[in-house]
Simulated assay, not measured.
Amino acid sequence: MKPSLPKKPRHIAILRLSALGDVCNLVPTVRALQRHWPEARITWIIGKGEHSLLAGLSGVEFVVFDKATGLAGMRRIWRELADTRFDVLLHMQQAIRASLLSLGLKADVRVGFDKARAKDFQHWFTQRQIAPRQHPHVLESFMDFARLLGVTDDRLEWNLAIPETAFDEARALAGPAPYLVINPCSNARLRNFRNWSVEGYASVIEHAYRHHGLRSVLTGGGSAAEREMADAIEALCPPGSVVNAIGGTSLKGVLALIKRARAVIAPDTGPAHMGNALGTPTLGLYATTNPRRAAPYLWRDFAVDAYPEAVRTYLDKSVEEVSWGQRVRHADAMDLIKTDAVIAKLDALLAHTAAPSITGVSDES
């Protein structure tokens, strides 16, 4: 017999360790839970880097797991929470590492994804599942956990914490003038292939500078590959049109840069969803992943979508013939994104947001 869902939970656990974009997409679910049960405690078990992005999120107690610590790190968390029993555990990570971590947590009921979405046998580790849904966006998949518990007010609210020191960091890098944030690289993962071309980015930067008077600030981590790409982009750009901040900011500093930016351009990576969370106009570049599932939620209409062409070209199928989460793992797929298409979307995005106002986003987001 399945355990009952709590009518009025006093302590809710959220288990979602990664990644940066996903935790941004999860925050509206946290806010929905807080509105419905303002007295409930919420404990979020989260990854180390993701915590550095969301630290200070109001009303949330974080327990941080560093995946580099492996089983020892899990045992530390189990000891830390040994005397804690949750009314409900929302297991929102489809990965065996997170499921193993969940085994040492005490909860009256464990909620996970429906079987179709429960990767890595996650359904073996949960007792209740969210309702199946056809073709959901990632953000909607997370919100389905709150809906299962009876939450009906699913307005989108983020209200991320950005300290003044982060804004000082952003001002020192970008100055006062309007600018774009361009995060050219996604996380370096095996067969990830989400990065667009150096030449494409350089052409968009030149267009933004000459036609809109906008400099571009390049953001990203400090890996050798990211630095190399940023240097190559900068070398092709007009003098004064770009600020190379790769590896030069904290995650809170990136948030502050994005908050002050006129717009964000990025492939399928965390800063695209940071822009979405902050209400900053965001242009996503998609070919290897489906933007209907993973584009910045409030800016899906402005995503450059070469995914159907990539599916036809490299999988020899139509979008309707592949699974909802299917990725196109081909090194040339992002080359299907044409510079003219990106420039046209940027022009449309800037025109649409000349006086930015996005329905559904809290003024405090």
Rank of each mutant, 00 (worst) to 15 (best):
H123N: 06
L173R: 11
P184H: 15
H135Y: 04
Q127M: 04
Q134F: 13
D154W: 01
R147K: 15
S186K: 05
A131H: 10
R128A: 00
F121L: 14
N183F: 11
N159Y: 09
D120Y: 03
F121V: 08
R133H: 10
Q129A: 14
E140I: 02
P163M: 11
G150L: 12
D120C: 05
V138H: 01
H135E: 06
N159M: 08
L149M: 08
L139S: 05
D144H: 03
D153T: 04
A131G: 07
P132S: 07
F145R: 01
P178I: 08
S186W: 06
P163Q: 12
P136I: 02
A131D: 09
N183S: 15
L139T: 07
L180Q: 09
A131V: 07
P132C: 06
D154I: 08
H137P: 11
V151P: 01
A170P: 08
A177E: 15
P176R: 12
H123K: 05
V138A: 05
R171H: 14
T126S: 05
M143F: 04
F125W: 11
G150R: 14
L149W: 02
L156P: 00
R133Y: 03
W158L: 11
I162V: 14
G150F: 14
A177C: 10
S141W: 02
E157Y: 04
F125C: 04
I182W: 13
F145S: 01
I182R: 04
P136R: 04
L148F: 07
R128M: 00
V181T: 13
E164K: 14
P176M: 12
R128D: 00
Q129W: 10
A131R: 13
Q134V: 15
I182Q: 05
A131K: 15
A170Y: 12
L149N: 01
R155M: 03
I162G: 09
E169K: 04
D144S: 11
L148D: 03
N183A: 15
P132Y: 07
A146H: 01
S186H: 05
D144K: 00
G175A: 12
R155D: 05
P163F: 09
T165W: 03
R128Q: 01
R133V: 08
A174L: 11
P184D: 13
N187S: 15
H137D: 09
I130K: 00
A172H: 14
L139I: 06
T152P: 00
F125Q: 10
N187H: 12
